[in-house]
């Protein structure tokens, strides 16, 4: 499986997934940290991929949905956006709603 197929597989198999630098409990970047924190606040399980420990994914993820930056958050196979969008959705209550509907 090449890197883009691996990414696609992860996105399709997990209703909520964040590709981030570090992990939700040990984030290595302020933007990844905030986005993961917002997802944790939603109170549902979500998957994470640490791009720092998977160089192949780090290199290929920007091409996957033509989105150049990290973190990237996917809900139900769709790119939600990065940190700023995730946080803005969280503040409006839209993130909790989307995550709640995706994870039964």
């Amino acid at each position: 499986m090449d890197a883009l197929e691996r990414i696609d597989d992860i996105v399709k198999k997990n209703p909520v997934v964040i590709f981030m630098k570090g992990t939700p409990t040990m984030p290595q970047c302020g933007f990844s940290s905030r986005a993961a924190q917002a997802l944790m606040e939603c109170g549902k399980e979500f998957a994470h991929v640490n791009v720092l420990t998977d160089p192949e994914i780090m290199e290929n993820l920007p091409k996957y949905q033509n989105w150049p930056t990290f973190p990237q958050i996917y809900i139900n196979g769709e790119l939600v956006g990065g940190c700023d969008i995730t946080l803005e959705m969280y503040q409006k209550g839209d993130l909790q709603k989307a995550v709640g509907e995706a994870v039964q």
Partner: peptide, 10 residues
């Protein structure tokens, strides 16, 4: 606009 996050040194 909101403040940006602090660095985590990654």
């Amino acid at each position: 606009a909101p403040d940006s996050p602090p660095c985590h040194g990654g």
